[in-house]
Nucleic acid binder design. Structure first.
Lengths: 201, 201
DNA sequence: CCTTCGATGTATCGTCTCGATACATCGACA
DNA sequence: TGTCGATGTATCGAGACGATACATCGAAGG
């Protein structure tokens, strides 16, 4: 999931780790931001896999006498997506398997980069997500119906609020699906990089 | 957080790990259940800390000849809360510090065991939680206002839905607070174990 | 009768994530 | 001049997670 988000952000422009984290936090919705303890290892993995390239200033340049003990001495590192990384991003973007919607976190990131995804794939992901959330809702419903009598006020309120949240999410997804279906013919199919541009324009 | 939930459950009755996990999943709201990889180490830690005691059937009893190689040979383990564990639980239950509401997961568990918490502490926790969520809401709001023009349809919808969810949570908390305030005089102050029972009965 | 299946049940492993922290530079403001 | 907060890179230990192994038992079904 982190991999996907990083590729998506670097796909737009190269960035520092710090900037990456800020943008990430915004995508993830303000709450639930990502920590450096996840970000930097992920960047390291992706660099090792050849998905991104790093560009850091020469560590030992223009240092005449080294009066400070030069411990640390870190420079800014700019991360850039490679051709391989773009390829990987497009694989991920076109994937509509269950992993795309079963996890809420990944689904959110997928949504944030939906403009890179074809309309039919978008529809499959949205519908898959709705099915997942509907299953959760049914589980919650039956659990609540089974235990309603034994629960005190606060536990009951907790379950009720959770159920309503899930319910609202289903309705929200349904609206998105409707919009997507209606706009399917008219929406701009985004970014077919090597493809032939459609006749219009 | 896990520690709190386990103590709370064992406070009601001794249990197996398996049963513990099921109850835990129900408290956590169906989604977001706890895994064995978290549960058993937690139980081990708590046993080492003296908060719970284990009761397992004698491993080498009534085995005349050991025809099976007896590898594994696990028996059911019943976990029981100790006096020390009950003490720890009451400390946690009376704690209304920021850690009780800043983390949504712990707050949910706290709610699930609110019947063990005095009304004034309940009120402090609910109000703290509301302040936390309100801060999140303001962050989301300003972020959304700042970037509304640059966002595509789906990113916008994602942020909007997130903001509405947070907004609903604030309203829900406000209702809980109102109820708690109104019921403060009449609500049963629960479970003062060594304390003096109030004059009424 | 026997066998397979799912629920119950305990437990560990490797991988990853998180929060805290350390270190360093820079501009702003007092 | 000092010192504060934002920017910036990076690691550490604690612990959570998913997958998996192993084991028992009752019920369904050939």
């Amino acid at each position: 999931m982190l991999e996907f988000a990083i590729l998506g952000l670097l796909h737009q422009s190269p960035m520092h780790g710090y900037e990456l984290r800020k943008q990430l936090a915004q995508i993830l919705g303000g709450l639930r931001s990502i920590s450096y303890g996840s970000l930097y290892p992920a960047l390291k993995r992706m660099h090792a896999a050849g998905l991104i390239s790093t560009e850091e200033p020469d560590p030992h340049a223009l240092l005449p006498a080294d009066a400070p003990p030069l411990t640390g001495r870190r420079g800014k590192v700019v991360y850039t997506i490679t051709a391989e990384g773009k390829e990987r991003f497009h694989e991920l973007v076109c994937d509509s398997g269950p992993e795309a919607y079963d996890d809420g976190g990944l689904f959110g990131v997928r949504l944030a980069f939906f403009r890179h995804t074809a309309s039919d794939v978008r529809l499959r992901i949205l519908e898959g997500r709705r099915r997942t959330v509907e299953r959760q809702r049914e589980g919650l419903r039956s659990s609540l119906a089974r235990t309603r009598e034994r629960l005190d006020h606060y536990t009951l309120e907790l379950q009720r609020h959770g159920l309503e949240s899930v319910d609202r999410e289903v309705r929200w997804l349904s609206e998105l699906i409707d919009t997507e279906r209606r706009g399917a013919a008219g929406g701009a199919p985004p970014e077919t990089p090597g493809g032939s541009p459609p006749s219009t324009k």
